[in-house]
Design a protein around this nucleic acid. Sequence first.
DNA 1: AACTGTGAAGAGTTTCACAGCG
DNA 2: CGCTGTGAAACTCTTCACAGTT
Lengths: 209, 209
Amino acid sequence: MKGIPPATVQRLPIYLRCLTEYGEPTISSERLAELARVNSAKVRKDLSFLGSYGTRGVGYDVDHLVHQVGRELGLTEDWAVCIVGMGNLGSALAQYGGFGQRGFEVLGLFDSDPAKVGKKVGGLVIEPLTKFARAVKSRRLSIGVITTPATGAQEVADRMVEAGITSILNFAPIVLSVPDGIDVRRVDLSTELQICSFYLSRSSGKRAS
Amino acid sequence: MKGIPPATVQRLPIYLRCLTEYGEPTISSERLAELARVNSAKVRKDLSFLGSYGTRGVGYDVDHLVHQVGRELGLTEDWAVCIVGMGNLGSALAQYGGFGQRGFEVLGLFDSDPAKVGKKVGGLVIEPLTKFARAVKSRRLSIGVITTPATGAQEVADRMVEAGITSILNFAPIVLSVPDGIDVRRVDLSTELQICSFYLSRSSGKRAS
DNA sequence: AACTGTGAAGAGTTTCACAGCG
DNA sequence: CGCTGTGAAACTCTTCACAGTT
């Protein structure tokens, strides 16, 4: 009875954000589409995968929809996040509010550099990688964020997989090799820049995604 | 005589990275596919959009291919990048090596907070936003990176567009509204986390990208 | 009357499978 | 023989258009 298309999953977080920021009690697909900058048919089709939560002639009840989308995204549970690699980017993310948001909590910061271990970042003490596997178990860490340099990222990923983490957010500029069943999301600055460059050099800025 | 599909453009930077890290003089589509973790037919089709740069029975000349892909991505030109919003993330990006890489140079750091203006980050002095428009012109800044909080991001985007920037990389958790012809790429941590959450809660980690 | 939910058409993307070249 | 380049098939995603509901 399941099977939400990946393309839809990618948009659900955007809808959720637009909805939580919206002031009124109900919203039409047209209005939500405008806020999320997509086509209104897409909104309706996307939402229809979650069930029939709209009212014809009226629209969607915002609170109810927020609840349903959040539930679908698994945000009723709280996910424990760890960050490995406490350079500038790792530290920035550790302090970033986006985590503290609904559904996520940073419960571990790790670095292999002894000089960094023991320092405090955003209320947490940086731990050595040797403590990683045990921490994953005891704190039930389930999302691993990799912010190491490219060198070392694969090794960190291997350790994560071995420790039982199945969901990895990779900021290192490298394509990670992981077993089936592990979900890796790549957030890659230089890739994005190069795509900017492509469309810039055509000087006919079409495209988004 | 042009028209590289968006899906292909997204993958070119990955191929480029794999190629530059590869040690041997030639590479087969099979091998490159393995490194980039995609299907080999996809590699061949993608590369065929650039022209026929392979040799049947042999594979692709790595150096030649690096050159062609780089050219296609517009990396022969050097793009001037500016970062607006010098909090933790902005500072981290300013110091991030990924920029200095081939094709990009950070030539402006801006913040509206007078307390930050004048400080030095990664060799550049933070400037007030009031100097932004002039700097875009004089330094030919062409890629704008937004690392402000969600509040203020839209205003920064408006200023960028007005100043003549047509390519924006947005790290703020908000959907920007910009005129046609402006290319906005979103890099959104909380969105990615929520997608992680979705696949985690199904506990059957299928998917990538 | 207003707006949802959805079949069906259309566009884009991936994969297959193999002809054709080196 | 090995590997590219590519038509064609399969699949996914988007958009249209409208029947159906409140």
